[in-house]
């Protein structure tokens, strides 16, 4: 097994007396796409900022490429690319100037900056916007530019904090496709998201994070197999009446969960569960059988949904 790219042990982050990250252990292997899945406030960004060597760890050990951020922060940063949660593009510069100056921060020659910028503009589908002012770009374009910028130093490790939050579905799919290409090129990626579909699409392995702690770890498939049933039956009764029907589904599947707008019945055979519900005389306004997702895993582990 190769040396892990990232090793964190008992990693903590405190802000004054508030503990945002409460001691996590993480290992990321070269070439892997690793995810932090969790709701807002889980501590994902705090963790990412420590890994990016822009925020010192309050406690625990962290090693990237075998180096300590407290000692070799600049050396580590030279080998990674960072896409922060909020774009930090330079709004006083044009699209390509953003790439040029960023390359200069990494000590690339001017000629090399221009060469890579041309390539990356192509990669980010921004070639025809090269001279545009950053302010005039759409959200999706800005995000693509942020990713292009993070690649200017040809990083071995790419950190993406909520790469697609706030983007429309089309823009998200474009981004996913670009990230998949990078994976094929062997770039290790660590990303955070609160979209379960994004985590399922992109991550080889992920951790579910909640309130500063890791509550589960594995591949998306493993997590679903371990924590959920194969299928889920969703029953929607009228608004405000869902909680009354909860008790009536007891025993239909392995478990059930009552949400404000629906009742979830966890069963390996969803159709059979639906037949049983009908047999018991239940008449929901709508019923749907679907495969289990990471959303269900999260719900089971934390009792809350990811969107909270």
């Amino acid at each position: 097994m190769p040396e892990p790219l990232i090793v964190a042990r008992g990693l903590k982050k405190r802000f004054d007396d508030f503990e945002a990250v409460k001691g996590i252990d993480v290992e990321v292997q070269p070439g892997e796409v690793f995810g932090f899945l969790g709701p807002n406030g889980a501590g994902k960004s705090s963790t990412m900022r420590m890994i990016a060597c822009v925020s010192p760890a309050s406690e625990g050990t962290l090693r990237l490429f075998g180096m300590d951020p407290a000692v070799d922060g600049a050396k580590i940063r030279a080998r990674i690319g960072v896409v922060p949660q909020l774009d930090t593009l330079d709004t006083e510069l044009s699209v390509q100037e953003n790439l040029w100056i960023y390359g200069r921060y990494f000590d690339l020659s001017r000629a090399e900056c221009r060469r890579r910028a041309t390539e990356l503009l192509e990669f980010a589908q921004l070639t025809d916007r090269a001279d545009s002012v950053v302010e005039h770009l759409s959200g999706g374009m800005k995000r693509r530019l942020s990713i292009a910028r993070s690649l200017i130093n040809e990083p071995e490790l790419l950190l993406l904090d909520e790469p697609t939050t706030g983007l429309d579905p089309q823009a998200r799919h474009v981004l996913w496709e670009r990230l998949y290409r990078l994976k094929q090129q062997g770039v290790t990626q660590v990303l955070t998201t609160h979209y379960m579909d994004e985590a399922e699409q992109l991550c080889d392995r992920l951790v579910v994070m909640d309130q500063g702690l890791i509550v589960a770890e594995g591949s998306p498939r493993e997590l679903i197999d371990q924590y959920s049933t194969r299928e889920v039956l969703e029953l929607r009764f009228g608004a405000g009446t869902n909680d009354q029907f909860g008790p009536q589904v007891v025993g239909i599947g392995d478990r059930f969960e009552v949400l404000p707008d629906r009742v979830l019945v966890y069963a390996d055979d969803g159709e059979a569960a639906l037949a049983e519900a009908h047999h018991r005389g239940l008449r929901p306004e709508s019923a749907l059988v679907r495969r289990s997702s990471l959303e269900d895993v999260f719900l089971l582990l934390t009792g809350r949904s990811l969107a909270d």
Partner: peptide
Amino acid sequence: YARIYDAALATPMG
């Protein structure tokens, strides 16, 4: 506001 330094500090700049 422009957060120029945040961007720079994510690179080897100190």
